[in-house]
Design a protein around this nucleic acid. Structure first.
Lengths: 195, 195
DNA sequence: CCTATTATTGACTTATCGGTCATGAATACA
DNA sequence: TGTATTCATGACCGATAAGTCAATAATAGG
């Protein structure tokens, strides 16, 4: 029995995510967010509780969706190496093509806020933990079916892949073209084959 | 024939580097810099010309020193794999041990400012270009002496190594312990051996 | 229709941002 | 010693930061 909200929470959160994604946390002002979300300042504070709280909700939404996407791609049918290749290639981006190479919001946040914001660091930590689990499960399957080398634990190979992805995301923000990213990704993927 | 400067430029620049390194560009205020450098605001503006100009000089100094260090380590005596291992291990850091895991200022800058500041992006781009050259030269030597695989170009292997390093630097800012970083580094280094 | 409850709006507050500048101090050279 | 020149100092500036709040609007239940 009250006045109903005039905007969609999830849609507003997505708009906020876009803003944080392209500019980073510190460089995104409330004015930027107001414009991106199409809302007045008061509405944002009432619905989300402030810049930091808004960022957390946007981050959670982003990480959750990204994780689900990866989990699905990794549990597809088809050979394990193909799934891994699809996931890695799916993350690439051309810094020349995109006006602003946003990279991955998770990585951006890890680098910008990881060492200073313990609450956010915790979220990012558990996200990368889940990501590692997803990769490790897929890699273990590959090890059982003979398409992935067995002389290294699946968990470690998973961490290696995530490290590669993060390195590629970083390179894509400035000095690595999409083609070069793909070449490097293939080098990493080659390393997973049984010898 | 004028009043001499009372502080050391390079020392002040190093203090500024420390500040930018631990907090990032946006999150470091002029007040932070004043405290870190032990200088009054006017002196900083007169000597360096403003926050952005100061950051550029600090970044140049940092990247130059880092490149020289890597170049020296990569042209050491001893087997090529040992040199590469030394360089990779030299970049690792424990996020738990350090209060604030600063990572690498070059990577931090690439992620924070790469897509938005063309002047800085250019510096970072040429830095990573030189870094790739240094690694490629060392890797090519290893290929000639039989300690590095020859089925992949040295340039590509170099880019792969830099990608790994950047991924490790990122992981070290939040979710990867020094031990785990070392494990992943070893996986990447294993990939360089001839089959 | 009345009322309780929540949403919207935009003016307002306080603090801090990067940056400027007038003043006074310290030196080298004449 | 006088003077030109650069340096150090900190008060000051307009702009903008995040955040607050009182007034108004819109709904649901009674």
């Amino acid at each position: 029995m009250a006045r109903p909200r005039e905007f969609d929470i999830d849609q507003a959160l997505e708009a906020a995510t876009e803003a944080f994604w392209s500019r980073g946390y510190e460089a995104t002002s409330m004015a930027d967010l107001m414009q991106a979300m199409g809302l007045h300042k008061g509405s944002i504070y009432q619905a989300f509780g402030g810049k930091h709280a808004l960022f957390m909700q946007a981050l959670d939404r982003y990480l959750g969706a990204g994780l689900a996407q990866v989990q699905q791609a990794l549990s597809d049918a088809g050979p394990v190496p193909d799934r891994l290749r699809a996931v890695l290639h799916g993350t690439l981006q051309d810094p020349a093509a995109c006006q602003t190479a946003r990279g991955c919001l998770g990585l951006n946040t890890l680098v910008e806020l990881g060492p200073h914001d313990e609450v956010i660091a915790e979220r990012v930590r558990t996200h990368y933990g889940r990501l590692r689990e997803a990769f490790a499960t897929c890699l273990a399957e590959g090890q059982r079916t003979g398409t992935i080398r067995t002389d290294t634990e699946a968990d470690l190979l998973a961490e290696f892949l995530i490290t590669t992805i993060n390195g590629l995301q970083a390179g894509g923000k400035g000095y690595l073209s999409a083609v070069d990213q793909e070449r490097v990704a293939n080098v990493a993927l080659d390393h997973l084959s049984p010898s």
